[in-house]
Design a protein around this nucleic acid. Structure first.
Lengths: 261, 261
DNA sequence: CTCCAAGTTCCATTATTCGGAACATTGTTT
DNA sequence: AAACAATGTTCCGAATAATGGAACTTGGAG
């Protein structure tokens, strides 16, 4: 069993999931021809795959022939979230960190070349808290993404870097592969990552990696704040606390999930 | 394409999803032998299916060989939720209903013989709101479940009734198939359903169906309240409001998603 | 009404999954 | 510590399900 990054679209299951991914990734309503273009599969094949997904409740079709993900996925996700031992172990540490710094804390897991938000602690339960959980962001322009990336073994990192598309989000976004490599090198040396308004203008953060490379597991935690309220110097001052929290989570994982993680 | 209830476990995809379902449904950590027993498949076959799921990020294995659902599912679910047109259309009506009755409102969709909670409106954002979304409950002992069931065409209802396991949750739970049929008949006649502490002691609710049978879509909305604060008479008095809200949602769906749903 | 694009079905071919049995690993007992 | 039992993993010929080209149907625009 290969434990690296999913060889997206291999095997019958992989192709089916690729369809779901195409629907989830596109933020416009996808119709049959859109999926056909996005996945380049023969019409007959794609049609059958879609039919199977619909039969399983993983995909739904609207009257205008556009597709949306099925609500059956919600059940799985609710379970994935509440059953996640990693999340459970991390939670108290996130709260402790939040108590210390008073800004929003994020917990995210690297998934291919994206990070998935697993949990979040903030002072005021802002509107629709759950809207954040499960959301994904690119790994090359987020603190947690870069932090997680810094602890991936070299060969595996290569595989993933090749798959990144360096889209520009703000004027500070790293859009060059070589600059990204240098940034990762720098983060590895320092032990923490900074996101200098690279994903969203006006928002910056400091992050540290939480990982179990022998299980192919890479994650990160971060303190996020608006630029107008918290200066970069303050974030850098918190870097030690973030690292300490990240290390405490890893220790806890080793203790509770067995030494080999 | 069959548009009825998913013929669970048919085809390669169905079997793979059945594995996920087994992990999600069991609330204890499942190991290989547990899944083997739950799914009765040959060892070699099950092992390969699990491997595929892990490769796709849909399943994770802990160091003690127990499995949990993969966080990749979170991404899909986040999208399924925020992309659900039904949820979007229903939301303002749920808020309006909540403004009127002042108790917790639920929106749920029937999925096989379970209901999946899609949304919820309550006065005080209680702890971890998102923990509720995506959770499932049996259809035979919840207001939304019974309401949704009451509008399923007879033959389709038969298929599903056969799959229900009438587990007792409280002293009021309907545990007999014939009693359930009578109850559904009664609900169909009245147009609304009551859950008289059938799922959780001390909690009762009134619900009404929201459905598009020609699309195989069955859902429901409910007003839920603790028995100590809200008497059954009050719930019944709200039945009209609940039905009105449900009907308004259906009208909106017809208007916004096309007449045939 | 006609035409063109989008969506759906069909079926012989081909690739994948299936599953029994052998092998390996883990952990339990004497 | 050795033997044993239970659990987990791999292999490969046979069986089955997925593939994809082409024909067919539907539906929307002019």
């Amino acid at each position: 069993m290969e434990q690296g990054q999913p060889e997206s679209g291999t095997g019958t299951l992989g192709k089916a999931i690729a369809v779901l991914d195409a629907v989830a990734t596109a933020n416009r309503p996808m119709r049959f021809k859109d999926l056909l273009a996005a996945l380049d599969q023969p019409r007959g094949t794609l049609h059958r795959q879609i039919s199977n997904l619909i039969d399983e409740g993983l995909l739904q079709v609207n009257s205008d022939h556009s597709y949306e993900l099925g609500i059956r996925l919600l059940k799985f996700a609710a379970n994935a979230w509440s059953g996640s031992r990693f999340r459970e172990i991390a939670e108290p540490h996130l709260r402790a960190l939040h108590a210390k710094v008073g800004e929003t804390i994020h917990l995210s897991v690297l998934q291919g070349v994206e990070v998935v938000y697993l949990d979040k602690v903030e002072s005021r339960q802002s509107v629709r808290m759950h809207s954040q959980i499960g959301n994904t962001s690119p790994c090359f322009c987020t603190g947690v993404g870069k932090a997680a990336f810094s602890v991936i073994p070299a060969d595996e990192a290569e595989n993933r870097i090749r798959k990144i598309v360096f889209k520009r989000y703000t004027e500070h976004t790293i859009t060059d592969e070589h600059a990204f490599r240098r940034e990762i090198e720098d983060i590895r040396a320092k032990g923490y990552a900074l996101d200098r308004e690279e994903h969203e203008a006006g928002i910056h953060c400091v992050a540290a990696p939480v990982a179990a490379p022998d299980r192919g597991f890479y994650a990160g935690i971060s303190v996020t704040a608006p630029v107008y309220r918290v200066p970069m110097e303050q974030l850098e001052a918190w870097a030690g606390d973030v690292r300490a929290a990240a290390d405490a989570i890893m220790e806890d994982m080793n203790a509770k999930l067995g030494p080999r993680g």
